[in-house]
Computed example of a mutant assay.
Amino acid sequence: MTVLQENYNCVLKNIEEACKKSGRDPKDVTLIAVSKTKPLEMLRDVYDGGARHFGENKVQEMCEKMEQMPEDVNWHMIGHLQTNKVKYIVGKCALIHSVDSLHLAKEIEKQAAKQNCEVPILVEINIANEETKFGIDRTEAMNLVKEIAKLPHVKIQGLMTIAPYVEDPEQNRQYFHQIWQLSVDIKNQNIDNVTMDILSMGMTGDYMVAVEEGATLVRVGTGIFGERNYNI
């Protein structure tokens, strides 16, 4: 087993532990290997170790990797998505995590209608109101969900958040709990064309706490691939 495969398995074991601690079934949590900026050989290595869900931040990079990786990979768009790039990934990626405006949702609808496909998305919430992060304020979430729900080719499946960078993951527990509570509140509205089955939250530094608070997708990059080199 390679180092990357060991890392991947270690994260899976930690998810299991967090599930055990919170009385959840580990099958309800999916690990996304965040492979942005990483070369193909590293993705293939982790794929060979069992990974089938990969997360990318940039459309071009994801499309290039898509062409060269096995067809059974589920690709997750987790970075900020510009409207002019939507046409390149509609119908190709498993889930778009980062929808934070009606404008973007309408472009996804337009491109999905052209291809006659349905596009699963998550609404991105800026839960800590950080100026440097994308996502909408949680107070605006209900209205945005109701508006996007009117688009027939766009399927809201839950919420996504990027919690603050903290030294102690416990500091983010409150935010993960708030996202979970928000998803419950939205679910209770019984809005047509909306499910709240997915909570994408938790990264390398805090995914165990996120799982304890209800995450169904965790996005781990550094914990699997090591530190990113932004200079390549």
Rank of each mutant, 00 (worst) to 15 (best):
T2A: 13
Y8I: 01
N9W: 12
L12S: 00
L12E: 02
A18V: 06
K21W: 06
S22P: 03
R24N: 05
P26D: 10
P26M: 07
K27H: 13
D28T: 09
V29Y: 00
T30C: 11
T30W: 07
L31K: 00
K36E: 08
P39G: 10
P39K: 09
E41H: 15
E41G: 05
L43A: 13
D45W: 06
D45C: 06
V46C: 05
Y47I: 04
G49W: 07
H53Q: 04
H53K: 01
F54G: 10
M62D: 01
M62P: 04
E64M: 07
E64K: 07
E64D: 15
K65D: 01
M66L: 11
Q68F: 06
E71N: 10
D72F: 08
H76P: 11
M77K: 06
H80S: 11
N84F: 01
V86Y: 03
K87Q: 14
I89N: 01
K92A: 01
C93N: 15
A94N: 04
A94S: 06
H97A: 00
H97K: 01
S98Y: 10
S98R: 08
S98D: 10
S98K: 04
V99F: 01
D100W: 07
S101M: 08
H103W: 13
L104R: 00
A105H: 00
K106M: 09
K106N: 05
I108D: 05
E109Q: 14
A113W: 04
A113E: 15
K114N: 13
Q115Y: 11
V119S: 14
P120S: 10
I121F: 12
L122K: 03
V123I: 15
E124D: 11
I125F: 09
I125N: 10
I127D: 04
I127Q: 01
A128I: 10
E130N: 03
T132H: 15
F134A: 15
G135V: 07
D137V: 07
D137A: 11
T139I: 09
N143A: 13
E147C: 08
I148T: 12
L151T: 11
P152D: 08
H153E: 11
V154T: 05
K155M: 08
K155H: 06
K155F: 05
L159H: 07
L159Q: 09
M160N: 10
T161F: 02
T161A: 08
A163S: 15
A163M: 09
A163D: 12
P164S: 14
Y165A: 14
E167M: 00
E167S: 02
E167H: 00
D168R: 09
D168W: 10
P169N: 14
E170Q: 15
Q171W: 04
Q171G: 03
Q171A: 10
R173A: 12
Q174N: 02
W180I: 05
L182V: 03
S183Y: 08
I186N: 02
I186L: 05
K187D: 12
K187M: 04
Q189E: 14
Q189N: 13
N190L: 03
D192C: 06
N193P: 05
N193E: 03
V194D: 11
T195G: 07
M196T: 15
M196Q: 12
I198C: 00
L199E: 07
T204M: 07
G205K: 03
V209E: 11
A210Q: 13
A210K: 13
A210H: 12
E212H: 11
E213L: 07
G214R: 01
T216L: 06
R219K: 09
G221W: 00
F225I: 08
G226H: 04
R228A: 05
N229W: 06
Y230R: 01
I232E: 14
I232H: 14
